[in-house]
Simulated scan of single mutants.
Amino acid sequence: MIGYLNLILRLVIWFLLTANLSVANIIIGVSIALLLPHRHKAAGALKDWLRALGEVLVAIPQAYIEAFEIILRPHNEEDVTLERVKPRRTPGLIFLDIFLITFTPKTIVLKYHEDGWYEVHRVRRRKKA
């Protein structure tokens, strides 16, 4: 089951990059998704994938809310923090985590550290003293 989710993730990325749903592009996308190297181990659990997909659904309205907050109230303060990668993450789940963080307007992942950390840039409203 996890192999199918990785294949679907690769196809979605391909279609987002090409923005073309022609028959030829679908054949090319499926071919590339199958030819890309992958692990044959089932490293990720189905519940981790379902939880990540649920977080994607929650992130969409959150992104709109944050965009309106930035428009209506200026965010003048920024900082860079390190966030711990959740345990037992496959490369596909790590990609989804980075996508979720970067999808919202107030945050962006600057770097993924191989030892299990995301370097995240955030903008915030300045706290009144």
Rank of each mutant, 00 (worst) to 15 (best):
R124F: 11
E77Y: 05
G92E: 11
L93I: 03
E69R: 00
R89V: 00
N6K: 12
L72N: 04
F15R: 02
L21S: 15
L16N: 14
R39W: 09
R122S: 15
R89Q: 04
A63P: 04
R73M: 00
N25L: 01
I70E: 01
Y118K: 00
N20H: 13
I26G: 04
L9A: 03
P105S: 14
I8P: 02
I32R: 07
L5P: 02
T18S: 13
V23G: 12
F95T: 07
E83N: 00
L100M: 14
Y4H: 05
R122E: 12
N6A: 11
L5T: 03
L35N: 13
R89D: 04
E66P: 07
R10K: 04
A33Y: 07
R39F: 07
A59D: 07
L50F: 13
P37C: 15
A42V: 14
R124W: 08
A45I: 01
K86P: 06
R51I: 10
I26S: 09
S22L: 06
A45T: 07
L100Q: 15
L93F: 01
K111V: 06
E66N: 09
G54F: 05
P87A: 09
E55S: 13
L35V: 05
Y118D: 01
Y64R: 05
D79C: 10
V109A: 14
G29M: 03
G44W: 01
E77T: 04
L46W: 09
V56R: 06
I60F: 02
R126C: 10
D48N: 10
R124V: 06
A33K: 03
E66M: 10
R39V: 05
P91N: 08
E77Q: 06
K111D: 11
L9I: 02
H113R: 00
I13R: 08
H121L: 10
Y64T: 06
H75C: 05
A24T: 15
L7H: 04
W14G: 01
H121I: 05
N76S: 07
R125K: 11
L57D: 09
R126N: 12
V23N: 13
L96G: 04
A129G: 12
L82A: 01
I71F: 02
L50Q: 14
R125I: 08
A33E: 10
F15P: 01
A67E: 07
L36T: 03
P37N: 15
L11N: 10
N6G: 10
L34W: 06
L36M: 08
L9G: 02
A59K: 05
V30H: 02
P87G: 08
T104G: 09
D48E: 13
R88Y: 11
I94Q: 04
L9R: 02
R39C: 14
T102G: 06
V109Q: 11
R124S: 11
G116W: 00
I2T: 12
I71R: 02
A63V: 04
D48A: 11
I98C: 08
H121V: 05
T104K: 08
T81F: 04
L21A: 15
